[in-house]
């Protein structure tokens, strides 16, 4: 008998709670929020999402569970977030890969039309360098050699038709030369190819680049940024803009929710993420990963504008490379 009473009381309790929830829609979040990472577990974007979600769940007042949906080159993660209801319980982590998918027209779900930006949290700087025993000593050497020997230089990167491909070809286009982009399967094989002498030119984000510069295995040639970096070991490396090459693309990481998410829910997420971004614990993470060198933060409106501009640039280069799906 007692058991039944308990069950009845419980049922009434749940019912009342549900009523209360219905009456106050802004009572968000009432359960765990899912963060969709469109990459496999263990990569830089995954580690970032896990660290950031841990800090921001404190401010959101609900646990954030990270779900990896790494299939189909970010398309599966995006489609998964797209098929969830627009209630703020599904947040999608994004990197330049998603606007690239849109620019290359490789998914039927149009990224910018279906998602609304929350915040761009951090940006990475990309560098070019050469192995230490390379005859190329400076960016001028590199450009002179590449102009004299079109397509002779080999630059590596991860995956065809992805960010590294865009950066390699976009930079060459802006500087007016040609080289061959060789796609690798992952960062480790790429680094091994550089250290083992298979590639002429190495590109990577600053955190991965630094360790090879410090050990003297790689000579940095150029930073893809507006100005030189405020890092002691890299202070003599010219920036692309100072060399007259107007190309500064790097990677970045941010968050979006599905279009149609109620404005008040969106505001709660933005506020929580803003507090997490300002948290000293997060600043510590940025310092460790060296993502604090260039300001990467953009609020929702700025983020939307930068996405629009990027998709346009991506479209132009990938169309030229013949990588846009008809």
């Amino acid at each position: 008998m007692r058991l039944r009473n308990v069950i009845t009381a419980g049922a009434i309790g749940v019912f009342l709670a549900a009523m209360a929830g219905g009456a106050f829609a802004q009572n968000y979040p009432r359960r765990a929020v899912e963060m969709v990472v469109p990459f496999g577990a263990g990569g830089a974007s995954d580690i970032f999402a896990r660290q950031f979600s841990e800090i921001s769940s404190k401010y959101l007042g609900a646990p954030i569970t990270v779900v990896n949906k790494g299939g189909a080159g970010t398309i599966e993660g995006m489609v998964y977030a797209y098929s969830a209801p627009a209630d703020g319980y599904t947040i999608l982590e994004i990197t330049p890969s998603l606007p690239i998918v849109e620019a290359r027209n490789s998914s039927s779900v149009k990224f910018r039309a279906e998602f609304e930006p929350i915040m761009r949290v951090q940006a990475d700087v990309q560098l070019f360098g050469v192995p230490k025993d390379s005859p190329i000593k400076s960016l001028d050497d590199l450009i002179a050699f590449a102009k004299a020997n079109p397509k002779k230089l080999k630059i590596g990167g991860i995956s065809p038709g992805a960010l590294d491909d865009y950066i390699a070809n976009g930079f060459a286009k802006a500087a007016g030369f040609q080289w061959s982009y060789v796609p690798y399967k992952g960062a480790s094989v790429l680094k091994a190819a550089v250290l083992g002498g298979e590639l002429d030119v190495y590109q990577d984000k600053v955190i991965s680049f630094m360790s090879l510069v410090e050990s003297g295995d790689v000579r940095p040639l150029v930073v893809l940024a507006d100005k030189r970096l405020d890092v002691p070991q890299l202070k003599d490396v010219p920036s692309s803009v100072e060399k007259g090459i107007n190309f500064t693309q790097g990677s970045w990481r941010g968050f979006v929710v599905k279009k149609g998410t109620p404005a008040d829910v969106k505001k709660i997420i933005i506020d929580a993420f803003q507090k997490a971004y300002d948290d000293p614990a997060y600043k510590e993470v940025e310092k460790q990963q060296m993502t604090d060198i260039l300001p990467g933060y953009l609020n929702a409106d700025e983020f939307r504008k930068s996405l629009d501009a990027e998709v346009e640039n991506f479209s132009a280069v990938f169309t030229e490379l013949g990588l846009v799906k008809k």
Binding site: I47, S188, Q288
Partner: peptide, 23 residues
Amino acid sequence: IPGSPVTAVIMAAFMIIGLRPGP
């Protein structure tokens, strides 16, 4: 340079611990 997918995760873990993998 991680020699396998698992060591790639271990390397990421080193970075979180505060070690800087590299030469």
